[in-house]
Amino acid sequence: MTPDGCWSGFVANIDNMKPFYFSLSLVLLLGGLPLTVSANEQLAGSWVTDAELSTPLDPFRRVELDIQVEGKIVTIEETFTTGRRNHTETYRIDTSKELNRVPVSWWSANRHIGAYIGGDQVMKIQADWIDEGQTLRLKSDFVLETSQSETPVRTYTEYRISRDGSRLTKLELRSSRNLPIVHVFNRK
């Protein structure tokens, strides 16, 4: 090892390596990084919104996610808090299933507008892992009830984990809304 640290030594010695030993070294090195097999498990844990970096949360002050990843089952508990009031909605999703039917008691995405979970109060959710397990992707279909009628709505949602596993970014596009919604969470 050189005085500049291990990376300097590694680069300096690359030219002297046989191809086999170079490949072996690379595999061993990458094996130490939190990628692939264990990446989606990084989603697990408790997360709390960073209001500064997020689309406004109002009327709530804080959103927390408690996420469990057990094999193909992802359980997302989403708790909205303001003052003394809070509400928790739970989404249990099987990523191996073509379609998940998740009961929803309460549509929480925008409490400023007169829109409520309608139809059979179920979200139909397709889920998969992308980006080598760094991102959980959900495609949801549900019905919103408004003063006039019930309207089918779809959302595209990604839960993206930062490389170091400390930050979770939830991106959402809703077919009825012109602006995307971005909520940034820090690990509790």
Binding site: N110, H112, I113, G114, A115, T146, S147, Q148, S149, R177
Partner: peptide, 12 residues
Amino acid sequence: ADLEELIALNAK
């Protein structure tokens, strides 16, 4: 965006 969304959801 909220108001535009309401107007989209209430199409009549």
